[in-house]
Structures are given as C-alpha cells and as structure tokens.
C-alpha cells in the first residue's frame, strides 16, 4: 500500500512540475517569412536549435545572445525554437570545441566575440582548428573601446597618460588574460613605446572592470571598457570615471559620448580594434543552410529591438556577411596572431 502511495506522490509532484514548466514558453511553430528571393533557397532547421554561448549566464556575450533569441522568437524568424545553451570554460574553448564537433549540422550556432580569435590562437596545447574552419554567418555590431581613467586622475588626454606610462608601469585591468582587453593594452604598449602595463586580469566581466576603476581597487588607473560598461560610472553624480578617447576611426556623433576625441588624434594611432559581436555556425554547412542563418540574423539586425539596444549601448551597427565577413574573420586572425607573436603568447 505504502509503495503505491509513494508512486502517486512522486508522480503528482512531477506532473505538477511539468505543467508549471510547460506554461512558460510556447515554442513558435509558424514558418519563417523572412527568406528573401535569391539564387540559393534556404534550408530550414528540422528540430530545436542550440544557440551556444561561450560564457556563463549574465556574462559577456550572454546578454547579446538572449536579446537575439528574444527577437528571433518575437518575429518568428525560425520555424524551430532557438535555445540558448551556456558552455562556459577555457575562455570559450569548451564552447568552440562543442560546436566544432557538430560538423555539417545546422542546428548549432554560436555567438562569438574576440575570444573566438584570441583563445583559438593562444590556447596551449593548440586547439586542432582555426577560426576559418567554422561556417561564418554574420557580424551584427562592433562594440568600440574607449580609454578610461578615474575622474580623480590628472590625465586629460591619451598623450598625458602615455607620457606617464613611459615613466612607470601603470596599473591596468580588463577582462581575462590574453583576451581582447589585454591585446589592446599590449598594442598600446607596442605602438606608443610605454613600459609594460601591470595588467590585472579580471574574470567577472567588463562591468566589473569598470567598477574596479570607479573604486580605484588595488590602485587601478586605466581600463579599455566598452562604452556601455563605462556608462553607469560616467553618468553617476558626481561623475566617477571618464573616457579620454575612443579607438574608432571617427568621433561618435550621437549619444552620450558625442564628440569624444579619437585616440589617433591624441597620438595613439590605433583605430581598427573593437569587440566583434558575430555569429558563427558549425563547420561545413551547405550554402542553403548558411543562407538560412544569414537571413535569420539579418532579420534580427533589421529589427527595431536590435536598433534600440545598439543605440542604448553605443554599438556601431555594422552588418557583414558572405565574403566580406570571411575577409573580416581572416583580418582579425592576422591582427591577433601579430600581437600574440609580439608578446610571446604562441
């Protein structure tokens, strides 16, 4: 008797769980309408898709991926659900390995940032594949870098900072080791001929890096945060951090940082480095499969939600796909390999 009641208790509990869960999200099943007329007809996924994220929930590209997923669902861009799956670890290596192993399967796409290059190039022992081995889908935005200092700092321009950095090692912080922030600091070092920065790798994301600068934690003096990461400290009253210059070719013309000088104009000639918010898919997809994903993410790019989000976060909107994106992937490989070589990371 007892056993039977036990079964009933468990079964009821589980069915309740299942029912609660089932109510939260209804898979969108209507077919895609965004496929545009062109030579190749897009091949649609036939089962739920895994949208692989190389960071933990809440970190780095996770936010971007979840916004994209929200848009894909809202606009019903995919006939099958697109489920975000976090595969954190090894600065992205765990996620890259996972997607690499899904050769020829269009049900795996992943959001990438510069770690896609830095990790693939510098991880030891070497990973058995290159950035070019994955199927390139599209780049959705460039997230610029600014050079930030604490509001109390005496430096007004990049030139002031570099003059000081030639005298003594400045204390800098950024996300990860040998990742995009350190790459940029090592490039500054290389281009301007300063002493090596005491670079403190932070593993809690860019927002945390900006906070460390705001609180001058452990004496930190300079960061290269993205505008959205620095914004809360910039808008605080009284102001806590300020950007000296931007590593973009031109000054921003709109938004909270309109008119910010370029670093190039202040004697720091770097204007080709930014965080790439891009989409890659498993290696070896057919042209028809690739086209499906290019269409989906073009749909995301064209949505009002994405435009609003980009404006809020001061992103450079820049949709690149096809051969141009392939070229971009190769160019970035070159940039990162070069800086890795100069610092002996290979």
């Amino acid at each position: 008797m007892l056993s039977r009641r036990g079964v009933a208790v468990l079964a009821t509990a589980l069915i309740t769980l299942a029912a609660c869960g089932g109510g939260t999200a209804t898979p969108s099943a209507s077919p895609s309408t965004s496929a545009s007329a062109s030579a190749v007809t897009a091949e649609k996924p036939t089962r739920p898709v895994e949208f692989v994220i190389s960071t933990a929930p809440g970190g780095g590209s996770d936010t971007y991926a979840r916004i994209m997923q929200g848009v894909i669902e809202k606009l019903k861009l995919s006939p099958q659900p697109v489920n975000p799956v976090n595969k954190p670890g090894g600065s992205g290596a765990v996620a890259f390995q996972y997607v690499f192993e899904k050769k020829g399967d269009m049900h795996y796409v992943m959001i990438t940032l510069n770690s896609f290059w830095t990790t693939l190039i510098t991880t030891k022992p070497a990973l058995p594949y290159k950035p070019e081995d994955f199927t390139p889908i599209a780049n959705l935005a460039n997230d610029p870098f600014f050079l930030w200092v604490n509001e109390k700092s005496p430096w007004k321009t990049a030139g002031d900072l570099i003059a000081e950095a030639k005298n003594r090692p400045l204390i800098a912080t950024g996300t990860g080791s040998k990742q995009e922030d350190e790459v940029l600091f090592r490039r500054i070092q290389d281009v301007a001929g300063t002493k090596a920065f005491n670079y403190v790798p932070d593993d809690q994301g860019g927002g945390h890096v900006a906070t460390a600068l705001r609180g001058q934690q452990a004496g930190i003096e300079v960061t290269v945060n993205n505008p959205s990461e620095g914004l809360p400290g910039y808008q605080a009253t009284p102001r806590e951090i300020r950007p000296l210059c931007t590593f973009q070719p031109q000054s921003p013309t709109t938004g909270p940082f309109a008119g910010l000088a370029t670093c190039k104009s202040q004697g720091l000639p770097i204007d080709d480095y930014y965080v790439v918010r891009a989409i890659m898919a498993a290696p070896g997809l057919s042209a028809a499969q690739q086209k499906f994903w290019v269409d989906v993410f073009k749909g995301v790019y064209d949505s009002q939600e994405w435009k609003d989000f980009a404006a809020k976060n001061v992103l450079d909107l820049n949709f690149v796909s096809g051969d141009a994106f392939k070229k971009l992937v190769q160019d970035l490989t070159k940039v990162h390999t070069d800086i890795a070589q100069k610092n002996g990371w290979l």
């Binding site: 929930p57 809440g58 970190g59 994301g205 927002g207 809360p232």
Partner: peptide, 13 residues
C-alpha cells in the same frame, strides 16, 4: 551603481 552583484542579478541587469 549599475553593476551586477551576483550572476543572477547580472542576468536581471
């Protein structure tokens, strides 16, 4: 401050 205090609040943010 506009910075997350925990992974969960990072997602809320």
């Amino acid at each position: 401050l506009g910075v997350p205090g925990s992974p969960t609040s990072a997602v809320i943010m």
